[in-house]
Design a protein around this nucleic acid. Sequence first.
DNA 1: ACGTATTTGTTCGTATGTATC
DNA 2: GGATACATACGAACAAATACG
Lengths: 240, 240
Amino acid sequence: MSLTRGDGVALWRKIATRLEEDIRHQTFGPGERLPTEQQLASRFGVNRHTVRRSVASLEDRGLVRAEQGRGTFVQEGVLDYQVGKRTRFSETIRRQQKTPKGELLQALEVPADRLVAKVLKIKPGATVIRLDRMGYVDDRPLSLAVHYFPAQRFPDLIAAYRSSRSITAALKKSGLRDYTRRSTKVTTRMPDSEEARLLRMPKIRPILVTESVNIDGDGKPIEFGVARFAGDRVQIVFEP
Amino acid sequence: MSLTRGDGVALWRKIATRLEEDIRHQTFGPGERLPTEQQLASRFGVNRHTVRRSVASLEDRGLVRAEQGRGTFVQEGVLDYQVGKRTRFSETIRRQQKTPKGELLQALEVPADRLVAKVLKIKPGATVIRLDRMGYVDDRPLSLAVHYFPAQRFPDLIAAYRSSRSITAALKKSGLRDYTRRSTKVTTRMPDSEEARLLRMPKIRPILVTESVNIDGDGKPIEFGVARFAGDRVQIVFEP
DNA sequence: ACGTATTTGTTCGTATGTATC
DNA sequence: GGATACATACGAACAAATACG
């Protein structure tokens, strides 16, 4: 593999262009790993520094993502997580021609701590049902969510969820006709080891954290949810 | 400085309580740096680990924020950045009893790139006005925003902004009665050096990035904005 | 671009006090 | 009392990020 030199175009730029073509033509498909910098360097007959310079320019433009110690990966398109009055996990995913899947991590009845009690407007210490769930899209982990429901109102929610494997369906079986999203707060932080492991993401990349409240037709809060998303796989979209 | 031991209360808890009092009494005011762990350890006559344990408990409760290589700082309360149909920077800040301020970094007329053209529904290459602005709250940098407007529709926007120092006022002077927020996308990533410097934040903490579109009464896009926020100073609040 | 000092973050190991069965 | 697990406290060394000249 030889590249002409001294023609007014820097070597790193030529290499960047070639790599960009390979990505556009799906020679390196979304999510795939590029050859190591060493391999690229010898293939193009240049120093590794030169390769690094071109990879850096691809990274700047968001085409690839370098992960220390793992490799360089072709960036997948980010998924839109739409948030509106009627936000349903599976609906918003299916609208983008992808396949959603949910996995229950655990289901518990626990006493409400201060924050949960305040949001759900129940007494601190009153029993709440807590569902921990992983959300997958096309079998890649997308979200890690904790949902709280007042146990008094939905006593059989856990059983209902286990049989239907859907929150919307379980709530309907528990007598709730419809619910809407009242508010959503979004923050960001670094993941802890557990979160990084479950979301299968490097610890050096940030996560998006949403806190949301769903209410019934009378405005009574029926669910409080905290969800964590791998920051480079999702963008939260608000459409008022 | 001596602390009684063996009375059933762990040393680290005593120290945490003392530090908490100092923060509540503003001995260490918001944003200020605490003494180093070494200094605290010798002042209290304990090992640095013991100090670290108490600082960690303060950090868990959100009272302080430790930054590697810099120190530990008293945390200011996080600011709610409210997003709805009518989102105005200064209104949302003033509603929280804080003082907003804007600083113009640069004002340019540039050709629209593909993304900007698509969002504003103009031809790629058509002239757009670009305003780069720092947003401050109580004199601390909060946001770093780039705004794009179609130049054809608002030819004198830059002059209008310079005289009023407000986007809403400048648009009004250019003949726009009212505008509303159509959509907001939120993502997260690590800051580059420039962003970290301007937002006065450490490079190891993530930023929130919002992309938003404002439209006029007829639904025509009149502004496209990209804003970056220091992740631990802001939460985006969306109420449909 | 590079070295040095400062400061927080992490990981060993060791010893002791406390609670529980 | 004895065995055991767990939290507390100390010590030393090194890693990583920052600040500065």
